[in-house]
Amino acid sequence: MRNFVLRRLTFSIFLVFLSSIVVFFGMRAAPGDVTTQLVNPANSYSAYLVPNLKHILGLDKPLLSQYFSFMGNTLRGHPGISLINGDPISRIIGSAGLETLKLGGAAFILTLVTAIPLGILAARRHNSLLDQGTTFVAVLGMGIPNFFLAVLLISLFSIHLRWLPAAGSSGIRFLILPAFVLSAEAIAITLRLVRSSVLEQLSRDYVRSLRARGLPEWRVVGVHAFRNALPPVFALIGTLARNLLAYTMIVEVIFRWPGLGYQLVQSILERYYTLAQVLALMLTVLVIFFNLLADLGQQFADPRVREGGRG
C-alpha cells in the first residue's frame, strides 16, 4: 500500500510538471500577446508603449527564462498581478476559487443528498413506479447536455415563473440554478450507482440473515446494506469532483458565476498569460489531485482492489 501511494504521488508530481510545460508553452504558442489588449493600436505612441510594456511584463526575455520565472513565482505563491486591476493574482484566485468552491460544493452536496436517498429507495422498491421514475430521471440527467439544461431551467424558472435570477452571484438565490445544472449529471450517475450497489447487497445472504434476526428494515437497508454498498460510491466521488470541476467552466460562463472557470476563459481570450497559466495549472493540479484521491479512496475502502492484498 505504501509503495502504491508513493508511486501514485511521484506520478502525480511528474504529471503536474508536464502540465506546467504544456500550459506555459501552449499559451505562448497562441498568436499575439497581452500588449495588444492594453495599448490602443490607434495610439500614435504605441511603437514606444508596446516594447516598454513587454519589458515591464518580462515578455522580452527568452521563453525558457520566462518559464522558470513563472514557475518560481508560482511556487512561492506570488505569480504576479492582474493587468486589469493591479490585484495580486493570488487574491484573484482566492476570490474566484471561493466562488467555484461555493458552486462546486453546493453541487456536490446536492448530488449526495439527492442521489443517495433516492438510490437507496429505488433499490429498496425495485421495479416499482418510484424505481422506474428515478431511472427515467437518471437517464435524462445523463443524456441532457448541461448547457441545454441551463437554457431550459432559465426559461422556466427565471423568465416564465420569475422565481429565480437568470444569472449572477449576489446571494443564495443565484446559486440554485447553476448548482442544480452542475450537479444534474452527477446526481444521475450517483443515483444509478447507489441503486445498483445497494440492490446487489440486498440479494446477499447476510441481508437475509439480518432480516431473519428481526432487524428493522431501515437498519438492514440504510445501515448494513448501504455501508457495504459504499466502496464503489467512494471511488466515484473522486471522478465526480473532477467532472464537476470540468463542467464548472461551462456553467460559470452561462450563469455569469465569477469563479475559476469564468476567469480562465476570460484570461485566455485576453491573453493575460500569467493569470491564464496559473488558473490552467491550478485546475490541472486539482484534477490530478482528485484522480489520486479516487485511487487512494478505492484502495482504502475496498480490500479486494488493494495492491498485493496488504495494507
Binding site: 435570477p165 437568470a166 444569472a167
Partner: peptide, 18 residues
C-alpha cells in the same frame, strides 16, 4: 453594472428581472 458578455443572456436577465 454586471457584465453580460453572452448576447443571448441579456434578454434572459432582462425578462427575469435580474
Amino acid at each position: 453594472w454586471v457584465p453580460i458578455t453572452q448576447a443571448s443572456g441579456r434578454a434572459n436577465e432582462m425578462e427575469s428581472g435580474t
